[in-house]
Amino acid sequence: MPQLNPNPWFFIMLTSWLTLSLIIQPKLLSFITMNPPSNKTPTAPKTTPWTWPWT
């Protein structure tokens, strides 16, 4: 059963994982977010009850 032989697939998985974690991930994490989180406390919107015309 050739699909149980991990010889070629393990090397491919290992190289792709190392490429992702050592080359691509630091480049992606170096970007500055355009929408940084703010320290403002969220305010609840003031809602008024709806008056139904048929009641």
Rank of each mutant, 00 (worst) to 15 (best):
P6K: 03
P6W: 01
P6S: 05
P6M: 02
N7G: 03
N7M: 07
P8K: 05
P8H: 01
P8M: 02
P8E: 05
W9I: 06
W9D: 05
W9K: 00
W9G: 12
W9F: 14
F10D: 07
F11E: 11
F11P: 00
F11S: 09
I12Q: 07
M13P: 00
L14Y: 07
L14H: 08
L14E: 11
L14S: 12
L14Q: 11
L14A: 14
T15S: 07
S16M: 13
S16K: 04
S16W: 13
S16F: 13
S16Y: 12
W17P: 01
W17E: 08
T19K: 00
T19I: 08
T19H: 04
T19S: 06
T19F: 15
T19E: 06
T19L: 10
T19A: 11
L20C: 04
L20G: 15
S21M: 06
S21N: 13
L22N: 10
L22P: 04
L22G: 08
I23C: 07
I23G: 05
I24G: 02
I24S: 07
I24Y: 08
I24M: 03
Q25N: 09
Q25C: 04
Q25H: 05
P26N: 01
K27A: 09
K27H: 09
K27P: 01
K27W: 11
K27I: 15
K27R: 09
L28R: 11
L29C: 08
L29F: 07
S30E: 05
S30T: 02
S30M: 06
S30D: 06
S30Y: 02
F31C: 01
F31E: 05
F31T: 09
I32G: 02
I32S: 14
I32T: 15
I32Q: 09
T33F: 01
T33V: 06
T33M: 00
M34E: 13
M34N: 12
M34D: 10
M34S: 08
M34T: 15
N35F: 15
N35Q: 03
P36F: 02
P36C: 01
P37S: 09
P37M: 09
S38C: 03
S38W: 01
T41V: 10
T41K: 12
T41Y: 04
T41Q: 14
P42G: 08
P42R: 06
P42E: 12
T43C: 03
T43M: 07
T43H: 08
A44F: 10
A44K: 07
A44N: 08
A44M: 12
P45W: 04
P45T: 09
P45G: 04
P45H: 03
K46Q: 11
K46I: 15
K46V: 15
K46C: 01
T47Y: 07
T48W: 02
T48A: 06
T48L: 04
T48V: 10
P49H: 05
W50M: 06
W50G: 01
T51E: 07
T51R: 03
T51N: 06
